[in-house]
Design a protein around this nucleic acid. Structure first.
Length: 242
DNA sequence: TCATTAAATTGTT
DNA sequence: AACAATTTAATGA
């Protein structure tokens, strides 16, 4: 299995550019804002293409941007004090993260790494706070975001303790298909079996086996370079009693 | 637009 | 981990 290398030829900041109209359309919360607020948000928005293996956030770095995935797939990993990565979460299109640390003006508490070439948008801490101070729709969005993510992290701990690989794959997949946190995903998630292996912590072969088991059960559909959800509730509850 | 080739992804052992 | 089979993307006429 090839290791995901960390490369940084040109700093992300230097590669950032102004987003195109089609890219703005993929940012759901913009539509909630009043015209004036939206204009300011768009004026501050930047996008950057992140290459596979590149780090977007590093633990300990001051939070300067609030990020969202427009296209691609990122991996959020927390390290323990001993440096052993413990929790993994994928961030598919439509997902925004970092609000917790941005609100408190602290340092990032996790690493964010691109699993594949991804297009990531960001607004500055200043604009984030400006919106937080005056826009109720923006506050609603952030609050909902925090609430849903809390539920996900609780679920992630449960997944970590499960020893049935099929259930782990199912529950991790269900998390990626979360309609509120990741509205950009829809019913077809673009992810390879290799990438899913990285997220769940299983070999590609085992992931392949688990996916076929889920497909036979009618829970998902396997497609080239992606997975389609046929029964989200069954995915969510896989491995639960009752 | 179509045919050919290379690259990526999946299926299997 | 290795390999074959399949699907997509890239290339050029």
């Amino acid at each position: 299995m090839q290791e995901l290398l960390v490369s940084s030829p040109i700093p992300l900041r230097a590669r950032a550019r102004v987003p195109e109209a089609a890219e703005l359309a993929g940012i759901g919360w913009l539509a909630n804002l009043q015209d004036e607020d939206r204009a300011r948000a768009i004026a501050d928005l930047q996008v950057v293409t992140v290459n596979p293996g590149e780090l977007l956030c590093r633990v300990g770095k001051p939070a300067t941007y609030w990020f969202g995935v427009i296209d691609g797939l990122l991996k959020m990993s927390n390290d323990t004090a001993m440096g052993v990565p413990i929790t993994f979460t994928g961030v598919p299109p439509g997902g925004w993260f970092g609000e917790g640390t941005v609100i408190k003006r602290e340092v990032y508490r996790y690493n964010i790494q691109a699993l594949r070439t991804s297009l990531v948008a960001g607004i500055s801490v200043e604009t984030f706070h400006w919106l937080l101070d005056r826009s109720i729709p923006f506050n609603r969005f952030v609050m909902q975001q925090l609430n849903e993510r809390l539920g996900q992290f609780i679920g992630a701990r449960e997944i970590d303790r499960m020893n049935d690989p099929d259930a782990r794959v199912a529950r991790s997949l269900a998390a990626l298909f979360h309609p509120v946190l990741y509205p950009g995903v829809g019913t077809l998630l673009r992810i390879t079996q290799q990438e899913l292996g990285y997220l769940v912590g299983l070999s590609r072969q085992r992931v392949n086996e688990a996916l076929h088991s889920l497909q036979t059960a009618g829970t998902i559909g396997i497609e080239y370079g992606g997975l389609r959800v046929l029964d989200l509730e069954q995915l969510r509850h896989h491995g639960k009693a009752g």
